[in-house]
Amino acid sequence: MTSIVQALLAVSLVLLPVSIYGDTCLAPQVKSQSYSTPEAIVSFDTVLIVEFSLTCKNNLKNVNLYADVAGRTIPATRIGEPNKYQISITDEPKKLPSGAYEIRFFDEEGFALLRKAQRSGESTSSLKPLFTITLNHPGIWSGPLIQSEFVAAMTAIIVWWMAYTQRGKLLA
């Protein structure tokens, strides 16, 4: 009986590190693309989108990831092929001004620590993310200061006025 207990204990000691570190992505490599709303003429909100693929050294697939963007936590959505993800942030242009946004990504364990720190009111800046992606948002363009319709109308009025005054000089 004691030999069976010792064998089970030995097997559990061997499998314990594998079960603890089995769900963690080791040495993550990320390739990302980002998009941000370029103009405010055709949209009311600013949209920031980051699409990325994740490769882990230990070939871990379909990891649950969570993004922390300026204190806002959102889940990363898996799209298409394995280990391809996307996040999107939408808000008013005033709340998403131009600049570089550092997006920190956490796995399940890191997300639990992040939520714990947020609930207790502690700073989350000391938490080490799985990886970070920087999104550069140049800001939104609100259009020209003078609308093209106004320029066309003013040109038409000036041309009409010049023609009218020249006609008056010819008749006099």
Score class of each variant (00 low, 15 high):
1 M>E: 14
1 M>W: 14
2 T>G: 09
5 V>E: 11
6 Q>K: 13
8 L>R: 13
12 S>P: 05
13 L>K: 07
13 L>S: 09
15 L>T: 09
19 S>N: 13
22 G>P: 10
25 C>T: 08
26 L>A: 12
26 L>I: 11
30 V>Y: 05
31 K>H: 08
31 K>A: 04
32 S>I: 00
37 T>Q: 10
38 P>L: 11
42 V>S: 15
45 D>A: 09
46 T>A: 08
46 T>K: 11
47 V>S: 05
48 L>S: 03
48 L>G: 04
48 L>P: 03
49 I>N: 04
50 V>F: 03
54 L>D: 06
55 T>M: 12
55 T>H: 11
55 T>Y: 09
56 C>K: 10
57 K>I: 03
59 N>Q: 07
59 N>S: 02
59 N>Y: 06
68 D>P: 03
69 V>S: 03
71 G>C: 06
71 G>V: 08
72 R>N: 02
74 I>K: 02
75 P>A: 02
75 P>E: 07
77 T>R: 15
77 T>S: 13
78 R>I: 03
79 I>D: 06
81 E>R: 11
81 E>H: 09
83 N>I: 02
84 K>A: 10
86 Q>V: 10
88 S>H: 09
89 I>H: 04
90 T>C: 01
91 D>R: 02
92 E>N: 12
92 E>C: 00
93 P>V: 00
95 K>M: 05
95 K>F: 08
96 L>H: 03
98 S>C: 02
102 E>Y: 00
104 R>N: 08
105 F>E: 01
106 F>P: 00
106 F>D: 02
107 D>G: 10
108 E>N: 06
108 E>Q: 05
109 E>Y: 14
111 F>I: 04
111 F>V: 02
112 A>D: 13
113 L>S: 13
113 L>I: 01
113 L>V: 00
114 L>Q: 10
116 K>E: 15
116 K>H: 14
118 Q>C: 04
120 S>Y: 04
121 G>L: 04
121 G>W: 11
123 S>I: 05
124 T>Q: 05
127 L>H: 07
127 L>V: 01
127 L>P: 06
137 H>M: 02
138 P>F: 01
139 G>E: 08
139 G>P: 05
141 W>S: 10
141 W>R: 10
141 W>A: 06
143 G>R: 12
147 Q>L: 09
148 S>M: 04
151 V>L: 15
151 V>Q: 10
152 A>F: 14
152 A>D: 13
153 A>M: 07
158 I>Y: 10
161 W>M: 11
163 A>D: 11
166 Q>I: 08
166 Q>W: 08
168 G>E: 03
169 K>L: 12
171 L>H: 10
